Simulated assay, not measured.
Amino acid sequence: MSRDGRPGRGGKVSLTEQAYALIRKEIIACTLEPGLEFTELDMAERFSISKTPVREALMKLQFEGLVRAYPRRGYVIEPVKVSDINEIFDMRLIVEAGAVQFAVERATNEDIARLKEIALSQDDESYHEQPDRSNSINNLFHENIALASRNARLHRSVMQMLGELERFFYIEARSTMAYPERHASHRDIVAAMEARNVGTARAAMVDHIEGTRNVLLASIIDGRRKSSGWVL
């Protein structure tokens, strides 16, 4: 099953999987806001699912670090942590700079054409209005670079980090902050790959990741000012 609750190749989705997908989606989109306290009954009533699958879903979400349990009290949506953002972006600098280096050396012309198509499909104006679409395209771009590296472990690492950043990107999209160079920097990365220039591609990826980090942190600080329970 995918994280949005759609069945995979196996077909049927269990109630636990449905509960997990529904709750996770609202946590990621901050519909269930960071710092919110709730009980299993609250979620069962919200999604019209019995308490047992809700309890099992919440165990999975605890493992992902999205929910914390308090015995005899209930649960709380984990606040956003600035330290988490910095740790993930430090890892991205190492992993994705390496991924783009290998991609320059190993990507086919078809791989690069696909990356150019994705980069050109991005629209700065719609970023705040259509965060689902924008984040999906952004993740697709970075995933395709990882795939072009022809290294399965690099690909898994990149996808894990992008998954951990989902909620942060939704908070950014809800803020007034803007990063007009985001999509242009994707195109710079593709241009360096087309030229088969490893040094330029690595530098463009590092600049892109640091630019994203800076805007994201500014958005989180903006969110902290507006919603005191959101951020640690």
Rank of each mutant, 00 (worst) to 15 (best):
S134M: 02
K25E: 15
F141E: 00
V67F: 12
G229K: 14
Q62T: 13
S121K: 12
L61A: 03
D132K: 10
R225V: 15
S136M: 10
I88L: 06
Y20Q: 05
A218T: 06
T108Q: 11
A218R: 15
S83P: 03
M43N: 07
R3L: 13
A178F: 00
R3M: 09
C30K: 11
K81L: 15
N144W: 02
A69Q: 05
R46V: 08
R182Y: 00
L216F: 08
A203V: 15
M59N: 04
A113N: 03
R72N: 04
V190N: 00
K81W: 09
E17W: 01
L120R: 01
P34S: 09
R196V: 13
S157G: 08
E181V: 00
Y179L: 00
P71S: 14
P131T: 12
K12M: 10
V80S: 04
E96K: 08
R72G: 03
G211S: 06
G98M: 11
E129K: 00
R213P: 10
A97L: 06
R225Q: 15
S219I: 13
E87S: 12
A29G: 05
L41H: 15
S50V: 03
E166Q: 12
G65A: 10
A21F: 13
I49G: 06
K116A: 05
M193I: 07
V190H: 02
V80D: 03
E37D: 11
M205V: 06
A103T: 04
H155W: 15
E45D: 13
D42I: 03
M1P: 08
E166A: 10
E64A: 14
F102W: 08
V54G: 04
L61S: 01
A203N: 15
R133N: 06
I171E: 07
S157P: 01
W230S: 02
I28K: 09
G5F: 08
R24L: 15
Q62K: 12
G163K: 08
R167V: 01
S126H: 00
E37G: 05
L216T: 15
D42E: 05
L36A: 12
M43V: 09
I145R: 01
Q122Y: 01
S126C: 09
S14D: 11
V231K: 03
M1V: 13
N135P: 02
I77S: 03
L140W: 01
L147A: 06
